[in-house]
Design a binder for these strands. Structure first.
Length: 608
RNA sequence: GCCCCCGUAGCUCAGUUGGAUAGAGCAACGGACUUCUAAUCCGCAGGUCGCAGGUUCGACUCCUGCCGGGGGCGCCA
């Protein structure tokens, strides 16, 4: 397809500039079936090719003057040395009869081709899309093994808002990739190894295992960690024991390992409580902590040494990847083995790359890690490529995200100045949502209210995290995220709940209207139908750029379109044929809203 | 000092990889509830897209240089 070829050409230029493949390279991997813009582009491509004398992208885009516009003639005109409008006319002539798909085509302005879709075409396409379990979303044309590295809390440390972002964004990416048919491997790279464990284990011993387990199990991880740290800094005897304990841990001492496992087990038990509350997919099966790679580290050093990349610098074993410099403009090393013989996180990250590629068969490596880690991950990638562990087909993508800020535009902090506990944040979200439900819908039973409060409260927190460009910082604001106005989870959920309410009143099973091809008499019905068909490309674009907010923007657009339809097109009071048609549109909207929210890890209640 | 990210309406944010007149939601103002959930909707306003150059038929988008904010830059992770 010409679209594919043109996109690939653009991508290859991008790759040369960056020096590494990017996740955007997969743009060419799919050819959307449902999105009418793609259907039109496919249909116009041969006509453009005939005029251009080569394959050529018609550049079909949304338009505010028609359903779509083809912009390809403008660029082509210069290449051909002719007038853009003449090129556009020639393309339309070459395209022949388009009347099964388009109601009108018109050359406008400097050479745009405005395209109006035929109602029957839209209705037919929608019927076909909704007959599929994927709701028209095209599966990935080539299935990749995608390893997603996300969440990564630290054992014996509280989860805070930084983990919220990684966990929520990672979970959405996992769901979206899986939906497209990719093989997804979740990896929760928990911090369960390293020097802090000396003091943590000694504190565990001091406290008594039973008491320590209780404290950790209750989720009072911060107090545990802080007390260990305090003793480490103020008590020389404790410090000496902690250091000895690190040696014992690394030496594989049985009793020390047992104590260490207790810390890990109690902490992960607590993490799981948070994960369940947060409605994410992570389980113990996804744990791939730093300790897992411990035995591989010596091998990494050896392989780097054999390949001649490893050099000694200031007593440490390092690799100098090209293009990285320090303050003094000297080459910046990735430290593989410290002067004291210990390994650090760079070594572990390299071991992860090797494990994921060689053992898991990874094609894509996604790192849902904060933006400050950019340079470190670039260096890990550079060394991995130099060592030959990654080749051109491997995608190494740092899915970077910004910080969560308070209303003062500074990093979100609790009143006491500490990082905000994630568990407390989620509890407050549910409480606030519960209060709102109680106020707005007093008839709802207490049980239902509790369920809805959880879906709405957690959904609001997650959605506000997902709805904006992840690389930017975002401002945490309870009132805004829980509002039913604007681009929020409650707004989308409310649209869904209203549809469920219509079917309850109709006394009709949703499945009954599922095969209906709708009648698109009202402009609102027409717009809604077109928007429903764009679910396909919305999901693909979100996946290609690892940007869940693109799916959010689409779902908001869909909910807005539905609300407009809802306000102007009575469903239950309409004549039979129209009523059936509108019920079908309602059902389709509810399914796409529900599926879209599900891809974001958010539930869609049937009543609110 | 060098590198990376960000800068769009009073506020919070989109902007489909270079297309026509830059869009939403808050807040403000004016409207719509004997109605399928008014937790909603409609209207009205609101802009030197940080600044200045450049590339071209066309730039919020690409390039260069500044300004402002954040982050990173050798043995913590």
């Amino acid at each position: 397809m010409s679209v594919t070829r043109c996109s690939l050409a653009r991508f290859s230029l991008r790759r040369q500039r960056n020096g590494t493949p990017s996740a955007q390279g997969q743009r060419a991997e799919w050819e959307s079936m449902a999105d009418p813009l793609h259907s039109v582009a496919r249909r116009l491509a041969p006509a453009f090719a005939a005029v251009a004398g080569r394959e050529c992208d018609p550049v079909v885009r949304p338009s505010d003057r028609a359903d779509a516009q083809a912009n390809g003639a403008l660029g082509l005109a210069r290449e051909l040395g002719s007038q853009p409008r003449a090129v556009a006319e020639a393309v339309l002539a070459a395209a022949g009869d388009l009347s099964d798909m388009l109601a009108s085509t018109e050359v406008a302005g400097p050479g745009f081709i405005n395209l109006v879709l035929r109602d029957g075409f839209i209705a037919r396409e929608l019927g076909a899309a909704m007959a599929e379990p994927t709701l028209g979303v095209t599966p990935a044309s080539s299935v990749r093994t995608v390893v997603v590295d996300y969440s990564a809390p630290n054992v014996a440390k509280e989860m805070h808002v930084g983990h919220l972002r990684s966990t929520v964004i990672g979970d959405a990416l996992v769901r979206m990739h899986g939906f497209l048919g990719h093989r997804v491997v979740r990896e929760n790279h928990v911090g369960d190894w390293g020097t802090p464990f000396g003091m943590l284990i000694e504190h565990l011993v001091d406290l008594g295992e039973r008491e320590a387990a209780h404290e950790l199990g209750m989720g009072d991880l911060d107090a545990f960690y802080k007390e260990a740290r305090r003793k480490f800094e103020s008590d020389d005897g404790f410090k000496a024991r902690a250091r000895a304990r690190v040696v014992a841990l690394q030496g594989g001492d049985t009793e020390t390992l047992r104590l260490w496992r207790t810390l890990v087990a109690e902490s992960t038990r607590y993490f799981n409580i948070v994960y369940r509350g947060l409605d994410v997919l992570l389980t113990d099966d996804d744990l791939a902590g730093e300790s897992k790679y411990n035995d591989l580290l010596a091998g990494i050093v050896e392989r780097l040494d054999r390949s001649g990349l490893l050099v000694e610098s200031d007593g440490a074993q390092v690799v100098f990847p090209e293009g990285f410099t320090n303050r003094e403009n000297e080459p910046l090393p990735l430290i593989i083995r410290k002067g004291d013989g210990g390994y650090n996180y760079a070594t572990t990250d390299l071991a992860c790359v090797v494990d994921r590629v060689e053992n898991l068969g990874a094609d894509s490596l996604l790192y849902v890690v904060g933006a400050p880690q950019a340079q470190h991950l670039q260096m890990v990638e550079a060394v991995s490529r130099r060592a030959g562990w990654l080749d051109e087909h491997h995608v190494f993508h740092h899915v970077a995200f910004g910080s969560v800020l308070g209303s003062d535009r500074k990093m979100l902090k609790s009143r006491s100045g500490d990082a905000v506990k994630l568990a407390a944040l989620l509890a407050e979200a549910v409480e606030r949502a519960g209060a709102a439900v109680a106020e707005k819908n007093p008839e709802m039973s207490a049980d239902d209210r509790a369920d809805v409060a959880r879906m709405v409260g957690i959904g609001a927190v997650k959605y506000s995290d997902l709805a904006t460009d992840r690389v930017k910082d975002y401002i945490f604001d309870w009132d805004r995220m829980l509002s039913f106005d604007g681009n929020t989870a409650p707004y989308l959920q409310y649209a869904h709940a209203r549809i469920c309410s219509i079917f309850r009143r109709a006394g009709l099973e949703r499945e009954r209207v599922r095969t209906v091809v709708p009648i698109l008499g009202d402009p609102r019905e027409r717009t809604l139908a077109i928007t429903l068909l764009r679910f396909d490309s919305a999901v693909h674009e979100a996946v290609d750029t690892a940007s869940p907010h693109k799916l959010c923007t689409y779902l908001f657009d869909l909910a807005t379109g539905f609300t407009s339809f809802y306000e102007n097109c009575p469903v239950l009071r309409a004549d039979d044929a129209v009523k059936t048609s509108r019920l079908a549109l309602c059902d389709a909207t509810a399914r796409v809203l529900s599926a879209g929210l599900d891809l974001l890890g958010i539930r869609a209640p049937e009543q609110m």
